[in-house]
Structures are given as structure tokens and as C-alpha cells.
Amino acid sequence: MKLTTGKLNNNLDQIRNPKLKRDLYTDSSVLNSARKQFFIGVILLGIPLILYLISLIYKPYGVTEMNPLDRFQGPSVKHWFGTDNYGRDVFVRAMSAFPITIFVSLGINFIGCFFGSIIGALSGYFAGVLDYIFSRLTEALLSIPMILMGLLFVSSFGNGVIQVIVALGIMFIPSYARIVRSGFLEYRQRNFVKRLQLLGSSSGRIIFKHLFPLIKSRLLSALALGFSNAILAESSLSFLGLGVPTDQITWGRMLKDAQGFVFQGVSAAIFPGILIVVIVLGSFFVSHSFKLRDQENKL
């Protein structure tokens, strides 16, 4: 329920022997497949975007417009995605939630990736005591339940989109730190790094100019996966009652709100659910394509 999938995949990558991937495909097909996967991913990600663009022009109802008599409708021409327990139009609501969902997800990953990269780079590059301290810290952070972190930020600092982003962003730091750290540990022993050090390049320069570009695609792949994990994590947080405020809804929040009424009208739950699945699946494909490209680069 945390960013565990991301964490797991990285660990799996460590277990996997990248060399063996070569056996799976011929070189050209790897590239081919990466391109295909990227293409499919982009199309999946494009579906909600197109719907969103439509909703900018075609917006028959207000986002919070209630009509209790029309509640629990199934999908129809009048209500594309049906209506919820107040008779609000699910399509209009889902589309108004689209930018916030994306913003939350990007925000969480920005925080996670930014601080995770710094921590990971420092501990991977300098290793030793610093690495030990950071490793223990990230390990501890991984064990802190999301509900506590959510409660800390939502209750202490008022509930809002930013609080949710910060709370979950912190939860995402360890997985990014691990990815960057493992990449840096791998490269720091390489001859070219040693050569640079002998030539008197500063550590900062080596880290940012030389090492980060090397793990760029690995990080991109993690970002794409993190994007989807953030949507799932936000919806889980909403499920525990600690998500975004009701006037700045996300798909996760919609899902949570509809959960109490699934037996009366399921469309208010199923459509935000489908949108989440589409987006997450889309970013999986994109993530895969980056990973394949990364493997290709390595060989």
C-alpha cells in the first residue's frame, strides 16, 4: 500500500541478471518492443486527456450541482458516466478531478524523487557512514504506516492537496533513494569515475554531470511507475478518510465516496476506478518501455 510496487520492482531488478534479457529478444526486437510499449502507454494515457478536453467544451452540469431525485443513475446519454448519491454527474466530476489527480501524483513523485535522489546519490557516492545512516533512516521510514503519516500532515496542517502531497511524497522518498543509491554504488567503482576523481573534478560535478545521466532512464522508468503508485496511494489514503478535501476531488476520493453506495449504483465507483486503471496501465507501459531501453543501453 505504500510505494511498495516500486520498491519491489527495483529489488527484482537487482535479482534479475540484466545480461540474460538479451536471450529473450533479439536486439532489434527489444527496441521495437520498447517503442511499441511506449506507444500503447501514451494512447492509454491519452484517453482521459481526450475526455478531459471534451469536458472543457461540453459541460452540461456543474461539478457540485446536486439533484437528489436523479441519483444512482447508470450511464446514459444524459449522464455519460451516470450519477452519484447526490445525483451529481460523474463524468463532469471525474473530469474536474483529472487535473488534481495528475497534480497530486506528480507532486508526490516530485518530492519523492527530488529528496530521494539527493539522499540516494549522497549515500551511493560517498558510501561509508553516510550510507549507513541514510540506509537505516529509509528502512525506518518504510515501516511507518501511511495512516500515521497522513494523519500527521492532514490533521496538523489542515487538510488540503498540498498536505496530502507532502505526506505521501515523504513516503515515496525511500524507494527513489534506493534506486539512485544502487545505481551510484554500481558506477562509483568504475574506472571513469576514478579517472575523473584523479583529474580533480569535484564530487558535485561528478554526481550531477556524469553519474546522474547514466541512471536517467532507470529513474524515468521508476517515475512512470511511481506516477501510478501515487494515484493508488492517494486513493488508499482517501479510503482511510485522510485524503484530499471534498471540494478538490481526485479519482481516489471519488472512489472512496462512492464506496458506501456500491450496492445502489455502482457507476459512481466504477468509472473513477476505470480511469485509475487506464492511467496506471498507461504509465506501466511507459515505464516498461523505459526499462527496456535502459537494458538496451546497458548491453
Binding site: M1, T5, S228, L232, S235, S236, F239, G252, L255, Q259, V262, A269, G273, I276, V277, V280, L281, F284
Partner: peptide, 14 residues
């Protein structure tokens, strides 16, 4: 992978 993309509690509801 579609299953992986479904939030666990939503899976439970389904």
C-alpha cells in the same frame, strides 16, 4: 497488470 493497477480496496469491492 490490469489487476496490479486496481487499488486493493477497489478490488475487494469488485
Amino acid at each position: 497488470e490490469t489487476c496490479l493497477a486496481i487499488p486493493p480496496f477497489f478490488m475487494a469491492i469488485i
